[in-house]
Design a protein around this nucleic acid. Sequence first.
DNA 1: GATGAATGAGCCTTCATTCAT
DNA 2: AATGAATGAAGGCTCATTCAT
Lengths: 212, 212, 212, 212
Amino acid sequence: MTQRKTRTTKADATRRQLLDAALAVIAERGYAEATVDRIVEVAGVSKGVAYYHFPSKAAIAESILVDGIGDLIVSFERVAAEAVSATAALTAMIELFAAVIFENAAFGRFFVAELWRPGRAWSAVMRGYEQRLLALLQAQLVRGQREGTVRPELDAAFESVALVGMVLTTTLYYIGEEGEAHGTLDERRQLFIARIVDFVHHANASAGMRAG
Amino acid sequence: MTQRKTRTTKADATRRQLLDAALAVIAERGYAEATVDRIVEVAGVSKGVAYYHFPSKAAIAESILVDGIGDLIVSFERVAAEAVSATAALTAMIELFAAVIFENAAFGRFFVAELWRPGRAWSAVMRGYEQRLLALLQAQLVRGQREGTVRPELDAAFESVALVGMVLTTTLYYIGEEGEAHGTLDERRQLFIARIVDFVHHANASAGMRAG
Amino acid sequence: MTQRKTRTTKADATRRQLLDAALAVIAERGYAEATVDRIVEVAGVSKGVAYYHFPSKAAIAESILVDGIGDLIVSFERVAAEAVSATAALTAMIELFAAVIFENAAFGRFFVAELWRPGRAWSAVMRGYEQRLLALLQAQLVRGQREGTVRPELDAAFESVALVGMVLTTTLYYIGEEGEAHGTLDERRQLFIARIVDFVHHANASAGMRAG
Amino acid sequence: MTQRKTRTTKADATRRQLLDAALAVIAERGYAEATVDRIVEVAGVSKGVAYYHFPSKAAIAESILVDGIGDLIVSFERVAAEAVSATAALTAMIELFAAVIFENAAFGRFFVAELWRPGRAWSAVMRGYEQRLLALLQAQLVRGQREGTVRPELDAAFESVALVGMVLTTTLYYIGEEGEAHGTLDERRQLFIARIVDFVHHANASAGMRAG
DNA sequence: GATGAATGAGCCTTCATTCAT
DNA sequence: AATGAATGAAGGCTCATTCAT
């Protein structure tokens, strides 16, 4: 039992090393230019293990995406369950989303690049996860319309996509801007997230709400 | 003289065939999976000519991006020169941008994928073009703030990126949605563009403006 | 003592499972495409045990061949000791040989493929077994010549090879023919073996013998 | 025109070099152990050309088999058309077959190994060629039965397979035997082929014929 | 005895680029 | 200008074998 656990733990550790290394390598130049050779080099393991733990390079990459989106989905679901209003939920989700991308730029870049890559070949699992993430945002937009805080004429499906796209692109742009920094990293992060939340708020809020 | 013209024309035609073919091939599976073999096959020319007209595969791709963004810049500049107000200019730019992407999804996809690809290797020329495009949007946002139609607390640099990201991602998402179509393609396009313009308007407009 | 026996028995069982699994896997696509992973999977044991019981993949395969040919040799020797005439012995040997291959097509295929594979790397042991098998046939051909039932001008060495090749190839061809079956499997088998025996008889028998 | 021809000729020469080299390499250790690296090394060309002229390693190998069997088929067809009797045709075919394998042992070995390899993956084209070769032998056996020179009880389908198997295996065995040579190579070859023809003759001929 | 994670050499294949004609 | 054969550096992946536990 102990042995089994130990083994499992060790194997899991190797798996994790591979995923971390893969994300780092993919973040450098994108999925296409990431080589398995480089990934295992960064992970500090031999080439064979990569194929012992994953069936292909694509599977490694997809595992990263699925894990990342999965975590977001879990967080979004908790927010949806706990938030007292659609406005609170949307604000929390956007904040969370931006914070995650901000803190894990490597994942953010990979996510953006693959989300809209022409002919991307990720599996149905992956597409399902994307849909669930969008659906969670969409549900809160609809809820907001019921609650009178989101403009009724707004198309929730369109809007959820716009939000994801906007958050991802601005965050990456922000991270990319290096040099002309004012304030500490944390301050800048706070300011940036506030800006996104404000943008979303104005874009979606109904007049009455905004006035409030 | 006639011959010179003929030659130039013919060379231009070949160049154009190559660019069109390259865009079509890249749109299928992305830049990395596009092969020169496939491009020349689609273009109906031999492999040698591709390297006669362009120094490399990357140069072909970059030429597509530069041409596309260049056209947008020219259009944006004309809009900026002619628009009677920042609001009119921004509306026209967003409409134009969405329409171009909508009509040339292949270009749109390529643009999105490369704009935020980690470690993308396009030249300084390319980056300069991107900056000019963003700067034209930014200028109108600033002008709007002067004119009192854009919220003064808004960060124009942030905002211009958000606009580009939002337009690109929603457009591609929309194009991807096939099947559940209501109305003709043109009607849907009109509706879609109206939605984007509306979104932008609400996100940016100052309260007084919106009330108006 | 009991434990020793148990151990031996268990070890033998594992060994047998591995050999059976290996033969099954090899029969699917040949030795080269058989993988140790697949063999242990079919055998239902871990990878480590395979290398505990055998020094290499080649050793497993060779063990199959040696065991199979060894059994044939033992049978041939018994036939040689008991047969009242060369004709009876040859008939019995050919019948036996064809029956064995017919009933164990997997072994037959493997045997054929490896017997004439260019540069096959089996050990001296293996080659020795082949020679012994051929020698037993050859001995009966020579005996037949002494007894006047086998044509005297016939080259026994050549003939023994021809017999083995002919039996193997026709049997495999027969097994491969599926669909157009007449009669039960057993009937077809009987008919087929009779045909081989007849062929051999005519090819080798001296005129006087045949007339008789 | 001249240029086209020159190019074609040169490309064909390269193709031929590859095929010859591949056959030589495959003859050494079999298809599975033949590497493309070794083939191009022997051919004296770069690795890329192999894949410029053939889609895969398997395609190279199959091309060899198809070409070789194709030549045999053409020869067999000529024999069938010209022979005055089934006996003459069969004798000529067997002689021809044995001579071809004798002179091109590399091809013979490859042919034998692949003809009965379990799960061999060659295309339908290849299987079709095999059938045509057997059919040509079979046709002469049937013709011989009509002409009264081949035993009527004999199964032509079975017999054709037996002939091919027997010729291939004995020839390769013969070639393999090195050292204990009597007479010149050509004398031994003559003797060997005579032996095969004699074997076939006895195995198939009806009593009356043999007496004649 | 047994397990299964890890190793690493080597394989087939792809593809941007060059160059003789 | 144009062709297409040729190049060669990688890249993804396989698999027999080893070894710590």
